[in-house]
């Protein structure tokens, strides 16, 4: 059987691969959406923080012999703490100003961080081994699926759903949303709003770091890995609707699928297809697919 002139077996393989890439898009755009939705900061250093996550995994292995699982816990904590520090010392001064200032500051930070890492580790990247448990692959009949990639899809879906649940369905989430709507009122109820905002930023950054650790065994751990992906992820967030949690998750996975298909149908366009979609979405629904116009 053929679909679009492609054997259906090959098509399933490609769709699955699209889903894997979509997992990274979803995780990263989720972090961005959380930060933008609750802090109103366009976090351009998200890619650099994703890269720092991967490096945290690499360095904790090199320096302390810590394995993948330890890194998966440690990296978001460490990188999140650095994020908290950035929020406390720098971003906090910008909340009253236009979005543009936050964007410029985080963009500058990204350049500095990437430059420092490149200076220290070169541009080619370091190898990072797949954890023992996930060595090898499963033969699905229509394709050979590396176990590690299956884990990436599963883990990222879980994290995405959990995040959505916490923000949209729990009491903590309702505090968060209330604090962005009307900080002074929430403060009056005895909740420490600045601390909550710091923790939210650290959480968003931590999500990027988790994505970084998960990416380390698939791609090279390299200083520029974040710069390559962040532009795409911004397009994903814009398509999903700035600040919409569910929008970020769904468009992350969805666009991964579409990009995967493009790689079969017309590979030359595979790195532009997402931007073409972005243009179309902006023309038809400027607030994004899941965004609400203010």
């Amino acid at each position: 059987m053929e679909i679009f002139g492609i054997p259906s077996q090959a098509l399933f393989g490609q769709l699955l691969i699209g889903l894997i890439n979509g997992s990274f898009y979803a995780l990263l755009s989720l972090g961005l959406a959380v930060i933008f939705g609750l802090l109103n900061i366009i976090n351009f250093s998200h890619g650099a923080q994703y890269m720092m996550g991967a490096f945290a995994a690499y360095l904790s292995l090199q320096w302390f012999g810590l394995n993948y699982w330890a890194a998966l816990v440690l990296a978001p904590v460490v990188v999140g703490a650095i994020g908290a520090l950035i929020e406390r010392t720098m971003l906090v001064r910008l909340y009253k100003l236009d979005h543009l200032y936050g964007l410029l500051l985080t963009f500058g930070l990204a350049l500095i961080i990437q430059g420092l890492f490149r200076n220290a580790y070169g541009a080619s990247g370091m190898p990072y081994a797949v954890p023992e448990v996930f060595m090898g692959a499963v033969d699905l009949g229509f394709m050979f699926l590396p176990k590690y990639r299956a884990w990436v899809i599963l883990a990222s879906m879980l994290i995405c759903f959990a995040t959505w649940f916490v923000i949209e369905r729990t009491k903590l989430g309702s505090y968060l949303r209330a604090a962005t709507e009307n900080p002074s009122l929430v403060q009056a109820f005895g909740i420490n709003v600045p601390r909550m905002i710091t923790l939210t930023y650290a959480f968003g950054v931590g999500l990027a770091a988790i994505a970084g650790v998960m990416a380390a065994p698939i791609y090279q751990v390299s200083p520029m890995m974040g710069a390559d992906i962040i532009i795409v992820v911004f397009a994903v967030v814009v398509i999903g609707g700035m600040g919409s949690i569910m929008g970020a998750i769904l468009s992350g996975f969805g666009l991964g699928l579409i990009e995967g298909l493009t790689k079969v149908v017309y590979p030359e366009a595979s790195n532009t297809v997402i931007f073409v979609i972005m243009v179309m979405v902006l023309l038809i629904k400027p607030a994004g697919l899941f965004g609400t116009e203010k």
Binding site: A10, M143, M225, D228, G260, K263
Partner: peptide, 8 residues
């Protein structure tokens, strides 16, 4: 970044 699709 990702060559898996081409490799398949």
């Amino acid at each position: 970044q990702d060559f898996s699709s081409f490799l398949l």
